[in-house]
Design a protein around this nucleic acid. Structure first.
Length: 797
RNA sequence: GCCGGGGUGGUGGAAUUGGUAGACACACAACCUUCAGAAGGUUGUGCUCUUUGAGCGUGUGGGUUCGAAUCCCACCCCCGGCACCA
């Protein structure tokens, strides 16, 4: 279904291709703005409508700021290392090394077909050795700062992807990518010490303008909690159990101690008559398993309450996590719903220590203490302070801050990733590859499938693995694990600033000029993955004085998910996927762009409509025919028309404001109104000034660049619209000379009156009283509310 | 359960942030154009009642106010995230 727009789009795309300078960000006299999209992960699937939404939104803003006279940095690149690409390559029996460049070409062509204005001279690719040389270099800096370390640890292992995963990559016990249930495996893994940055990652969220939801997710993920660690002496044993609590004031309500099955003293606590059951219970409770129901076993041992000296039973239970806090808690069933549930199930006593009428368990912070010896009658807050001080003085407690955040597991037992630049020497241990030997390039191989043994496929490539220790020269082996998918994307926004630099990852002067990213636009699915890792990485670079901002992305905008026409998430199995290529074929790239921006607010989820896109196609056609017809007019007695001046200013005002606020849908609707009025007047034979047509082309340009540029040339303009100044509105036309007053009775609209702008309250009321519709109410009026230039309300009540 | 976002015509959505609810579209209907269709154009379109007109109307119930989609309280539902994190 070829149409005229296809021809127009081809024509201008060819011209843009020949004029790459249009979109180069190299005029350093202008103010800067850095508009960044989350670069695509180059999987096998190609571009989907979500990409189009993301890139079009950013492109509108980029084109707008270029016309506003900014030095706009709007780059694009490719994130291509990692599991999805590798899995796809395996599935289709291709080597990722051959397959990735092909795929990049495909993506690039699709993006160019959309008319997105990227500065292609800055294109980057995370799998290019010239790029990952610096990813590896940065890893070595982490190592120097002791922010990277190798440790054997139980890690989440995906049996399908056959690699260890980070905590962030495990969603509800399943692999983030393939959905398989993960297992726990003990593996020697590289870790990055992200926990050292927990406080700063938390605090600096205050400095960025991000959607509240994403900030909150990061806060939750970091999970900072301040509390107290308290030692409970175990009866008849020479050790004590340390518990963690954030509610120490409820200690008089403690009726049991609960520890996790993996707790180191679990077995030691078992008395002889309980040993059999305890041992059985510990063996049966595999870690990492989802807890559906609380189970537990009594150890036979008792702890001594540090104040009341009563005996408290010690239980082992599955609802206590081994790796949070101390792996042990004091059970306060009256004021913790999990402890309550457990106590109910095993008939343990429940002691209420907060005075409340609400049903137990009461977890609130309001009320006074009861039955708590010297805490009784104190408020919860005061009691907490007092007991904390007391227990610390006794030497059995200390203040402790716990985090949910764990160190970032940084090794993957896969082929398709950046090799970790380490050499394992039998004498020197882990030796970093000297910086001058970087990059450690990934060898080209025939077999790259994961082994599943916990060993990387690289281990089998002997002439790559075997090397010499850079320190002592002894025969050594290379580290065969690779970096995770997220490594390359932790700093790509910096490489765009100076993509061809071979001396350093980017020139500090350029970093100083461009950073931070002003707008970062992309999906919300990266809330605690990429966006957390990149912030951490950036902060390390900041500490090394390699970047000048604490945060990489000043403002974050998430585009909403586009659902299928059936209001369901697009998926192959549902068969409701809309393919952008098809849409371009049936309509045009401009139609696709404008439609996606018109569907609804940029940040909301919204369903696709096959009918809706027709309306946009018609709208663009109306614009095109208006320009074609206008061109034909010979007798150009060009008129300025007062009402058009007004409408023009109003439209410029609206479109300008809306673009800055990412409200593209309402910007487009005001363009529709503007077009309709021009078309209406034109069809009535009115010969209005060309200026109004120029404004239409300029305002349309960010949204539908091909068509706008074509229209621009139809009215005899030669230059690229990219170089044209964004139109300005005339303030004087934004104000109405005559004001419309709403006349209400008891707040309900009855009529309107037009009156001059500076009419006094008296004048307005007098005029309103003359209205026929008001007649029957006038006798009952008790009060008149007057709002200048807006409303006069007659109150009868 | 907790956190974040939301609930407005047949549909997608507007609403200057407390002041004309339903902009702009889609769909539908009638008419114009056409041999016919497509495309285009004009008009109508929240609901109810008998038109004029009136009443009702932004998830539900209450409140504040001259006036509430907008603010407050309670509740229901949908989407996204987290989930025995002590």
């Amino acid at each position: 279904m070829a149409n005229i727009f296809h021809k127009i789009e081809k024509k201008w795309q060819a011209k843009w291709e020949k004029n790459p300078n249009l979109w180069r960000a190299n005029n350093f006299k202008k103010p800067k703005i850095y508009i960044l999209v989350m670069f695509p992960y180059v999987s096998g699937e190609g571009l989907h409508v979500g990409h189009v939404e993301n890139y079009t939104g950013a492109d509108i803003v980029a084109r707008y700021y270029r016309m506003k006279g900014f030095n706009v940095l709007h780059p694009m690149g490719w994130d291509a290392f990692g599991l999805p690409t590798e899995n796809y390559a395996i599935k289709t029996k291709q080597n990722p090394m051959n397959f990735v460049p092909k795929n990049i070409e495909k993506f690039k062509n699709q993006i160019k077909r959309l008319g997105i204005s990227y500065d292609w001279s800055r294109e980057i690719n995370t799998t290019d050795p010239k790029y990952y040389k610096w990813t590896q270099w940065m890893f070595l800096q982490f190592l120097k700062l002791d922010l990277a370390y190798e440790k054997e640890a139980p890690v989440n292992f995906c049996p399908s992807c056959k690699t260890g995963l980070s905590n962030e990559e495990v969603i509800e016990g399943k692999c983030e990518r393939c959905g398989s249930e993960t297992e726990i495996k003990n593996l020697l893994q590289w870790h990055l010490r992200i926990t050292k940055y927990a406080d700063r990652l938390l605090d600096d969220l205050k400095e960025v303008d991000w959607p509240e939801g994403i900030k909150e997710m990061q806060r939750k993920w970091i999970g900072k909690k301040e509390g107290l660690e308290i030692d409970f002496q175990v009866e008849n044993k020479n050790f004590s159990i340390r518990v963690f609590t954030t509610r120490p004031e409820t200690i008089f309500g403690c009726t049991f101690i609960a520890i996790s099955p993996e707790h180191p003293v679990a077995l030691k606590l078992a008395t002889s008559e309980y040993y059999f059951f305890v041992e059985k219970y510990i063996k049966s409770s595999l870690s990492g398993e989802e807890v559906n129901e609380k189970t537990g076993v009594f150890t036979g041992s008792y702890a001594i309450h540090p104040i009341t000296k009563t005996r408290i039973p010690i239980w082992i239970t599955n609802y206590i996590l081994a790796d949070y806090g101390t792996g042990a808690i004091m059970g306060v069933p009256a004021h913790d719903k999990r402890d309550f549930e457990f106590a109910k199930k095993f008939s343990l006593p429940i002691i209420k220590v907060i005075n409340t009428n609400l049903p137990l368990p009461y977890e609130g912070e309001e009320g006074k203490m009861i039955d708590s010896e010297f805490l009784t009658y104190l408020s919860i807050k005061d009691a907490r302070e007092k007991i904390t001080e007391y227990l610390i003085k006794q030497g059995i407690a200390q203040v402790k801050i716990n985090y949910k955040l764990r160190d970032w597991i940084f090794s993957r037992q896969r082929y398709w990733g950046e090799p970790i630049p380490i050499i394992k020497c039998p004498y020197c241990g882990n030796v970093p590859v000297p910086e001058e030997d970087l990059p450690v390039t990934l060898p080209k191989v025939k077999y790259y499938e994961p082994t599943g043994t916990g060993e990387s496929p690289l281990a089998k490539i002997l002439d790559w693995v075997n090397t010499k220790c850079p320190r002592c020269g002894a025969p050594s082996k290379r580290e065969t694990n690779t970096m995770p998918q997220w490594a390359g994307s932790c700093w790509y926004y910096l490489r765009y600033l100076d993509p061809k630099n071979n001396e350093r990852f980017a020139d500090p002067k350029l970093i100083k000029f461009w950073m931070p990213v002003d707008y970062y636009i992309g999906g919300a699915e990266h809330a605690v993955l990429h966006l957390l890792y990149a912030r951490f990485w950036h902060k390390v670079l900041y500490d090394l004085k390699l970047v000048n901002t604490k945060e990489p992305f000043y403002r974050l905008v998430n585009q909403g998910i586009i659902l299928g026409p059936d209001n369901e998430k697009m998926s192959k199995s549902r068969g409701n996927i809309v393919n952008p290529e098809e849409v371009i074929k049936n309509y045009s790239a401009d139609t696709l762009r404008v439609y996606e921006m018109f569907m609804g607010p940029f940040e909301s989820t919204k369903p696709w409509s096959h009918e809706g896109i027709n309306g946009i196609f018609r709208f663009l056609n109306r614009i095109y025919s208006l320009f074609k017809e206008y061109k034909k007019v010979k007798n150009k007695k060009l008129l300025k028309i007062e009402e058009l001046e007004k409408l023009e200013s109003k439209t410029i005002f609206k479109v300008t404001n809306d673009i800055e606020k990412f409200k593209f849908n309402t910007a487009i609707s005001s363009l529709m109104e503007y077009q309709r009025e021009l078309s209406r007047r034109f069809s009535l034979g009115q010969l209005f000034s060309k200026k109004y047509m120029e404004t239409l082309a300029k305002l349309l340009f960010p949204f539908a660049p091909h068509l706008a540029q074509e229209c621009w040339s139809l009215i005899g303009k030669k230059e690229f619209l990219d170089k044209v100044k964004w139109p300005e509105y005339n303030k004087k036309y934004l104000k109405e000379k005559e004001v419309v007053y709403l006349v209400q009775v008891d707040g309900k609209l009855k009529d309107k009156i037009k009156i001059k702008e500076d009419a006094t309250q008296q004048e307005v009321i007098e005029a309103a009283k003359k209205l026929q519709k008001l007649e029957k109410f006038l006798s009952k009026v008790k009060k008149i509310v007057f709002v200048k230039n807006k409303i006069v309300n007659f109150v009868t009540k």
